[in-house]
Design a protein around this nucleic acid. Structure first.
Lengths: 165, 165
DNA sequence: TATTGTTATACTCTATAACTATA
DNA sequence: TATAGTTATAGAGTATAACAATA
């Protein structure tokens, strides 16, 4: 349990880190903004998946996910094949063109980070990665709470990624 | 100099950290979104200043700063007195109402962070703060490069916070 | 002529809500 | 009746460009 001053400092650091994200964002190809890059990266790391899973990994509402996915699908970087087991769902999968784009993205972030973090050691980057991962885990599921149903009864704790009715 | 894998991991962590920021953002009062909170916090930490200095601290364009500042000024949290030394400028200063709002903000972020980071040690929070600060410093001035002037000659390196002509 | 700050416009990202189609 | 996904709409944040007032 840390001191108030440290928490305020952390809040400030998180607020200010947006500048770094914007800096990295400027390296992206015009056709592939940050949201699209995240979709491609997650499909690469975790393999094919459904919309709902992707929304969970991105920690955003499925409606937003749907638009990011539409963007990358329109450009041919993924395809959406119907899920034979559930006709409501579609399976998202990287295409060869998507892998090409990923290689491009990797090249760009590599260049930018190698430039800006030239004086960081291997260990320091690892440390930061570890702490950021832990921070995300600690916040875990802190997404907007669905509006309480009219008759709560015994149903509410079921948290999903879809937009609440 | 770190390995490609680490850089890609860092890019991913930074992309995903948005979820934490959004989580904290949900704790804010409806009238005081993140941009406004940043203005108040920076005025508290660094004391009264001009628009251009605030834009630099926030690492955003002055046009954006202007809107954030207008928002908090309309609510009486800061005042903008004319700078006697330069009639183009205005001096931004917290009002008592602004300090009240800051106390509220501090209370809220304290509660949220103490809740989510309950199992973090003092040292770990410090470590993360330090690394994030260093990350920001390393990226330093990575803001959009002003479009090259028609006749560069010997003028360009002067970097300011204003919108390029 | 150059600089400070404001405003208008456009784009990205997100959330809420209403809707379709399946289960 | 509930769930997977889509679309429409609204709001926050940012960047670019054009502008007014002052240096």
């Amino acid at each position: 349990m840390a001191a108030r001053r440290q928490y305020e400092e952390l809040a400030q650091q998180l607020s200010a880190i947006g500048a770094v994200k914007r800096g990295l964002g400027r390296m992206l190809p015009h056709e592939c903004p940050a949201g699209s890059a995240a979709v491609l990266t997650l499909l690469d790391r975790h393999g094919e998946m459904r919309m709902s899973r992707l929304a969970e990994l991105m920690a955003i509402d499925m409606s937003v996910t749907s638009r990011h996915v539409a963007h990358v699908a329109e450009r041919g970087w993924i395809d959406r094949s119907p899920d034979p087991a559930d006709k409501r769902s579609r399976i998202l999968r990287l295409t060869p063109a998507g892998r090409d784009m990923l290689a491009d993205l990797s090249e760009r972030s590599m260049n930018a980070l190698a430039h800006y973090l030239a004086d960081w050691s291997d260990d320091e980057v690892d440390q930061l990665n570890t702490l950021l991962g832990r921070l995300r885990a600690s916040f875990g599921d802190c997404r907007p709470v669905p509006a309480a149903p009219a008759v709560p009864a015994a149903a509410p704790p079921e948290r999903t990624t879809r937009t609440p009715v």
